[in-house]
Every structure is written in structure tokens, then in C-alpha cells.
Design a protein around this nucleic acid. Sequence first.
DNA 1: TGCCAGGCTTCAC
DNA 2: GTGAAGCATGGC
Length: 268
Amino acid sequence: MYKVKISNFNLSTIADSGQCFRLNKVDEGTFNLITKDKFLRIKELPNNYYLLSCGKSEFDNYYSFYFDLKSNYVKYIKICNKKDKFLSKCIEYGKGLRILNQDIFETIISFIISQRKSIKAIKTSIEKLCKLSGKKIVNKYGVFYSFPDAKSILKMGKAKLKTCGLGYRTDYIYNFCNAVILNKINFDKLKNLNDEDLLSFLMSFKGIGIKVASCIALFAFHRVSICPKDVWINRVIQNEYNGRIPNAYIKYAGIIQQYWFNYYRLNH
DNA sequence: TGCCAGGCTTCAC
DNA sequence: GTGAAGCATGGC
């Protein structure tokens, strides 16, 4: 167990933000997080303290980066034009938001699943996938399942994979996993690509278009200028900004859109 | 119960 | 290059 103080951090907001799908509230102030094959229990304590089920070294080496705790969100928030009442409202509403650094493979599969699904439905599909092909994790908090790797997903076969409620996305996922094994894709090397090349690489796979590629680039590669445009963000841009993102926001458009998304999705 | 969801591919034009 | 049709399924 490790107790640590974290400022500008709100687990409920992050859990509802649609960037990760396995951070779940189990009780008021208590959350479970499964990333890849790791389980974490987090409990909120008074005065911005948190009790984590991991040790200090795991926190320093993994979760501090995962939750993007080294970034200064006050700096990001300052970009907001004070006259922009809409964004100010979104930022106030989304206080404690973080753009996570998630596992690349897990993020790719999760966002292929995400297309034309509600967040609730995405979570259901992902849990089924993990239960059918992930590794069992048993601890004092319960029974959980790791996020499977490409090999485990392929081993299931298409028919079983489809029972995760994937519909026409089944082939996309199956083919991507096949490519991972056959082409021996080195995910770490992708980190060296510039934004444009990274998006092109991701979009070379069937089932990954500009929106899904942008989500992957932002939520797994931390490309904070890339702005995924889904139905909600398009509505915001149309209804609040006359169809165009203000120039001042372009550098951190990925972060700005996350505040927009959180607010707009839950208030319209 | 019909409509919508963190869209993409395919096919006209 | 742009626009529209078709797509599987869960959740509300």
C-alpha cells in the first residue's frame, strides 16, 4: 500500500472521460483500475491524499506516468481565453482531468471497438473480451481479467471473438492482431514517429480511421495537439465555435477537446 | 421501440 | 476529392 498526495486529480472525471474503459468506481471514493495485466485499487482520502494498493516504486515507475502526474495542467488551463465562457465552464466542470498514458496495444483494440458504440457498450465489450481471453487476476478485491495480447485474441478464433458484441469490428480486430504477430510490430518504435506518420501508420489498418487513430495518438502516445473529432466534438465546434477550432487552441487541442467532451456529453 | 453511439469502408459521381 | 449508403449490436 502506498499513500500519496495528488493535486489536480479527479478519478470520477477521468473514469467518465471516455479515454479509458477499465477504471471503475466500486464505491464512493473507491476505484478499481486494470491496465494491461496490472490491477490497482485506489481510495480517495481527505485533503487530496490517495491510498493505492501498489508500492511506492510501482507508483513512481508506472502509475505516475500512466496518470500523467508530472504534467502541469494549470499551464494547459491558462491557454483558455478568459472570454471563452464555454471552455471556462468545461474546464471548471472537468477539474482534475488527466490525459492518460495508456498501453498502446490495449488502446488500439479498445478504440477499434469504440466506433459507433456508446461508452457503456464499449466497456461491456471490452470486459467480455478480457474475460474470454485475458489472464485471471485473483486478489483480495475480487476476480479480474487482464487485457489480452494479440496472440491470446487470435487463439480465441473469430467466432468466439464475435461473442464479445463486436459486430462488424470483429474482422478489424482479428486482422490487426494478425498483423501484430506476422509483422512483429514494435510498438515502442512507433513513439519515434512524428504525428503525421503515426496517424498514417495507424490508419493503414482496416477499421482505423482518422477519429480512432487520433484517440490512439492522444491517449497512448500523448500527442496533445491531436484532436479526435467524434459526434460530440463536432457538435461543440459547430454550436460553440462557428465550425472552427480557435487558433490559440491548436497546440493543445487534444487536451482542450477532452474538457469539451466531458462537459458536453454529460450536459446535453 | 426506435434512435443513437468517442466511425469506417465502399462505391458513385 | 466529396458524399451517401451500409454496417452489427448494446443501451436508453
